[in-house]
Amino acid sequence: MTLPPSDSELGRLMATLPRAGRVEWIGLRPARGQAMQEVAQAEAVTGIGLLGDRYAGGSGKRGVTLIQAEHLPVIAALSGHASVLPALLRRNVVVSGLPLIALKERRFRIGDVVLEGTDECDPCSNMEQALGPGGFNAMRGHGGLCARIVAGGVLRLGDAVTVLA
């Protein structure tokens, strides 16, 4: 999907967010099959990814994966759990306060880091094992956003998530 022109009514609506978001959780995947490591901050490197994450050096379109905090209870309910911890879902950053899908094809800042939303972060087949039968489908539409790193730096817990013009 290509964004509508910014001077159109739809373009203006899609560019307007009620407030900034906030980083609630950060995690790194050290290696395939290993538990996520919760961290207070992470260094993002342009063209590389998050240092210490197993996907660093892979596809630039997926340098950072984000998931919306408000979707965690939805995923839990749809998968039959009382709650779901962020590490179980294997996304790097949990953001609250703004709809992540609105950041697709847009540049945004977290701390020192400038990111660009590239695509929805669809669930993988591992969610069936992590969440139980139906876990893959429980995450469909709630998997978050993939982003490429435009300008590297450090992102931290509590950082604001703001859209750039």
Rank of each mutant, 00 (worst) to 15 (best):
M1H: 14
M1Q: 14
T2M: 07
P4N: 01
P5Y: 05
S6V: 09
D7E: 15
S8E: 09
L10G: 01
G11M: 06
R12P: 15
A15N: 10
P18R: 11
P18Y: 00
E24R: 15
E24W: 11
W25N: 07
I26H: 07
I26S: 04
G27T: 04
Q34R: 13
Q41K: 10
A44T: 00
A44K: 04
G47K: 05
G47P: 06
I48K: 14
L50H: 01
D53P: 09
R54I: 14
R54Y: 12
R54P: 11
Y55H: 15
Y55C: 08
G57V: 05
G58N: 03
G60A: 08
R62E: 12
L66T: 01
A69C: 08
A69M: 00
V74I: 11
L78K: 04
R91Q: 07
V95T: 07
V95E: 06
L98P: 09
P99H: 10
I101S: 15
A102N: 13
F108P: 11
F108V: 08
R109K: 13
R109T: 09
I110M: 14
I110Y: 10
D112I: 10
D112W: 05
V114A: 09
L115C: 07
L115D: 07
G117W: 07
T118A: 05
E120G: 15
E120L: 13
A130H: 09
G134D: 06
A138S: 05
M139I: 06
M139P: 03
R140P: 01
G143Q: 01
G144L: 06
C146K: 15
R148V: 01
V150L: 02
G153P: 02
G153H: 02
V154Q: 02
L155R: 09
V161G: 04
V163G: 08
